[in-house]
Computed example of a mutant assay.
Amino acid sequence: MRVVVVDDQQLMREGLVALLDLVDDVEVVGDGQSTFSAAVSRRLVDALSRAAPPPVTACPDGLTVREVEVLRLVARGLSNAEIGSALFIAETTVKTHINNAFAKIGLRNRTEAAAYARDKLL
């Protein structure tokens, strides 16, 4: 067991800093804004940057908009279940889109699909 010795003044300083941070946050929220810790902000930015690929503006090789969306997510390494969740469609529908896209552009596997998406869709 490890014992850490902390003096009362250090505890008071840390408590005062935490209290001042809390007062600042309350003022920000009171002004109608929101506040997040640095860690939460970092996680939020990371999640948002991964979550939404750019909108589909052109569909090469006869692909549909949905097939392009699915191929982009395949290229990001998502499973069929994860793609279904991200696009709010059934996993079997994801499989159908993948099979249709593979047939249209002559792909045999997800590795080829990822390379195709990287080169033509991202």
Score class of each variant (00 low, 15 high):
2 R>P: 08
3 V>D: 11
3 V>S: 11
4 V>H: 10
4 V>C: 09
6 V>G: 08
6 V>K: 13
8 D>I: 10
11 L>F: 13
11 L>P: 05
13 R>K: 15
13 R>M: 13
14 E>I: 06
15 G>K: 02
18 A>H: 12
21 D>M: 12
23 V>T: 11
24 D>C: 11
26 V>N: 08
27 E>Y: 09
27 E>P: 05
27 E>M: 13
28 V>L: 15
28 V>I: 15
28 V>K: 15
29 V>C: 11
29 V>K: 09
33 Q>H: 14
33 Q>F: 13
34 S>H: 12
35 T>W: 14
36 F>R: 14
37 S>Q: 05
40 V>G: 06
41 S>F: 08
43 R>D: 15
43 R>M: 11
43 R>P: 05
45 V>M: 14
46 D>M: 07
46 D>F: 08
47 A>P: 04
47 A>F: 13
49 S>N: 10
50 R>K: 15
50 R>T: 09
54 P>M: 05
57 T>C: 08
60 P>N: 07
61 D>F: 02
61 D>W: 00
62 G>N: 00
63 L>V: 00
65 V>L: 06
65 V>G: 02
65 V>A: 12
65 V>T: 09
68 V>W: 03
69 E>R: 10
70 V>I: 07
70 V>W: 01
71 L>Y: 03
71 L>M: 08
71 L>Q: 01
71 L>R: 02
71 L>A: 03
72 R>G: 00
76 R>T: 02
76 R>Q: 07
79 S>W: 09
80 N>H: 09
80 N>Y: 14
81 A>I: 09
81 A>T: 14
83 I>K: 02
83 I>A: 08
84 G>C: 08
85 S>L: 07
88 F>T: 08
88 F>M: 10
90 A>K: 12
90 A>S: 13
92 T>A: 12
92 T>W: 07
94 V>P: 01
96 T>N: 11
98 I>L: 05
99 N>H: 06
99 N>M: 11
99 N>V: 09
100 N>S: 14
100 N>W: 07
101 A>Q: 00
102 F>C: 00
102 F>M: 03
103 A>D: 09
103 A>F: 02
103 A>I: 03
104 K>S: 04
105 I>F: 01
105 I>N: 06
106 G>K: 02
107 L>Y: 05
107 L>K: 02
112 E>D: 01
113 A>N: 01
114 A>S: 14
114 A>E: 02
121 L>H: 03
